[in-house]
Amino acid sequence: MSVLVYTENWDGKFKKLSYELVSYATALAKELGTSATALSIGNVDETELKSLGNYGASKIISVSDDRLANLVNSAYSKVIAQVAEKEEANVIVFSNNFGGKALAPGVSVKLKAGLVAGVTALPSSIEPFTVKKAVFTGKAFANVVVKSDKKVLSLARNSFGISETDNNAAIEIFTPELSDGDFRTNVKDVTKVMGKVLLMDAEIVVSGGRGMKGPENWGPIEELAELFGGATACSRPVSDEGWRPHTEHTGQTGKIIAPNLYIAAGISGAIQHVAGVSSSKCIVAINKDPDAPIFEVADYGIVGDAMKVLPQMVEAVKELKAEG
């Protein structure tokens, strides 16, 4: 019996997301009276692999195979299922990100293990195994019972946090059994978004809506995001108008994010927009309309002209930084 956690890497590096997953798997393993094993697929060096132990993994299984350089749904799922069987894992944990969505359902079918996607907390009960997840795009929560012996969970981003524990975990190399039939999709071309902090990873997100009037007014939004080491985002009409790239659009049909701080300037707060940001820890709204629905979900608000408020905010943040 064990808990297996699949830790994705980006060019050989783990992210906060991976450490949060290991922290969750470790806490879950404790409740089940067992330990957590982390699985990594790809070329990751030993120091980086060892870092998973700092979040509680007691064993690290590393799979590196040239054919697994890019994500292939069927091959990756097969590797994970093989490791799960070898480790006699009864719970397999993923992130509910792009990678998790591509793999967790495959592992679920292979192991006949009930899947709960977007889990937000540790199980509320072990017998029956019951976990909580968001449903109706964040408008409610469901308690889901997994009836099968084996379970697959994918964790919602930023829902658990990170807890460090010193664990000098052993690294084990695993050689999976794969055949040509597992590689029937092929990557022809890759485009990476480089340099900037990715919206999905950002702790602080500064976002603008149609109230910003035009792309020429995005200066203070970008400056603020940069001061915070965060990312910029926007509402759908803003990306539809071509003021900002589509990769920035948040909401039901865009990215769903959960940063520590979300600043919404000139955004009305339509339900479809809020669906993408409502899990943020703190929401600040700047809107000239005191009745804008965004104030119903915000923690802090300013009724005023964003064109005037944002530059003042830039100054105030600079001052705060200068004070240290």
Binding site: G114, L115, V135, K139, A140, F141, A142, N143, V297
Partner: peptide, 15 residues
């Protein structure tokens, strides 16, 4: 099915 809903909750009202 391998899973079933035991119940639902609405989010706590925000301050």
């Amino acid at each position: 099915a391998l899973t079933e809903f035991a119940g639902f909750e609405l989010p706590e009202a925000k301050a």
